[in-house]
């Protein structure tokens, strides 16, 4: 009995310290998510305006654009490039499992993969995917600069005509409770059919020139938006996972405390009974 009591005490302590750690992690994620959410929202207007302008130009100049990057790609090439944006660390609930599911569904073993985040890297290598390069996600908010080396791989492969499309698997941040792992196409840029050709814009120096520098800019911005979404989702998922873990740990601690008190009381009662009955064990 005495040993059992000690063990229970130990377990109470460990579950309490787990509760403490998870609480701390939850608070860290909560503070990070604030900044991430603000950045996602700040970028929204800008991103929307860029895609609005791009779609406008695409609608207005239909036949000019056949030799531009990101628009017309040889459809005979079967191979695609996938960017997988995951996390460096676990402890974020079902977020990673959902991303892995997306990889299984949409990537074939022939396709190239560029992983962002340690978890995706180990997963893809383990499962025999064709990993072209890997980057780290980092624990702080991603800066705009980080996308250049990532997108350079895409540019090189497009120039070499090795791939026909570029997709991104990431977790879309809807709000703090709902995040969704999705596969989104980045290249080729699709035309939105809602835009009608009004044909009233003047381009300076020319539509081709403008698009040439606008398109990489546009792709970069979409990609950065995805990166920010993934980061915000990671923090949100970690926050809710940790708050669940914290609650569970607390629950275990209370039920263990009850068991501890009960068995302690039982022990005392037994001792008193023994004394009253005059029996000695």
């Amino acid at each position: 009995m005495a040993e059992n009591l000690q063990q229970v005490k130990k377990r109470i302590k460990s579950s309490q310290s787990i509760a403490q750690i998870t609480k701390a992690m939850e608070m860290i994620a909560a503070s990070k998510i604030k900044k991430a959410q603000a950045s996602v929202e700040n970028n929204k207007a800008y991103a929307e305006r860029i895609s609005f302008i791009v779609q406008k130009i695409l609608a207005e100049s239909t036949d000019l654009l056949y030799n531009l990057p990101f628009l017309n790609i040889d459809k005979n090439i079967k191979r695609k490039l996938f960017y997988v944006i995951s996390t460096d660390k676990g402890l974020c609930g079902g977020l990673l499992a959902n991303i892995y599911k997306q990889i299984f569904v949409s990537v074939s073993k022939d396709d190239y993969i560029v992983t962002i985040g340690k978890k995706a890297q180990t997963f893809c290598i383990k499962n025999g995917y064709n990993v072209k390069a890997s980057f780290l996600m980092g624990s702080s908010f991603p800066k705009y600069d980080v996308i250049y080396p990532m997108l350079k791989i895409m540019k090189d492969l497009l120039d070499k005509k090795e791939i026909s499309a570029v997709n991104v698997i990431y977790t879309n941040f809807k709000n703090r409770i709902v995040q969704q792992a999705i596969t989104k196409s980045l290249v080729p840029i699709e035309k939105d059919k809602n835009f009608v050709n009004k044909g009233d814009h003047i381009f300076e120096p020319s539509a081709n020139e403008v698009l040439k520098s606008l398109l990489p800019y546009y792709v970069g911005n979409i990609f950065y938006d995805m990166l920010m979404n993934a980061y915000a989702s990671e923090q949100a998922a970690r926050m809710s996972a940790m708050s669940n873990a914290n609650e569970n740990a607390k629950e275990i601690a209370t039920s263990l405390t009850i068991i501890y008190n009960k068995s302690r009381q039982e022990k005392i009662t037994n001792e008193i009974l023994d004394l009253a009955n005059g029996q000695i064990h």
Partner: peptide, 14 residues
């Protein structure tokens, strides 16, 4: 350098 006043024609430039 360009200066834009109200009623400017539609334009896209860098």
């Amino acid at each position: 350098l360009i200066t834009i006043l109200a009623g400017h024609t539609s334009l896209i430039t860098m």
